[in-house]
Amino acid sequence: MKSTDIPPTHILIIDDDESILDAVSLLLSDFGYLVDTISHGEEAVMKVPQLLPNIILLDVLMSGVDGRDICKSLKQDEKTKHIPIIMLSAHPGVSKNMSEYGADGFLSKPFEIDDLLKTIEKFVQKD
């Protein structure tokens, strides 16, 4: 748990599956994080520069848009390129070339809760 004088870590979850958004945001806010969600991948590139979260959890295969493309454009944007991006996917095969798109981490679905928390924690400390 965070102490009150430090602002809580802001995490943005981008996934087209509502249940994932709901479950993960419930869990993370329970652990004291400030959580925002985006269910339409297309909006991400526009919204992220406004929200400026500390960490982004980004699904790879969403309907209509590829998370890898979002990751790439966020990493090219001066305003957002410092934000660590953790990619999530049910296709573990896509994990191989994640760094090509500038992703900082990868978790394959279904992930262990501990792994999710540890991965986030890693970037919080870096931050």
């Binding site: 599956d17 249940s19 994932i20 709901d22 479950a23 329970d30 049910a90 809760i113």
Partner: peptide
Amino acid sequence: SHELKTPVTSMKVYLAMLER
């Protein structure tokens, strides 16, 4: 199986909270 993985993922997260 990929389609099945998504609900399993959220189930696991909900369950983790239920366990707490």
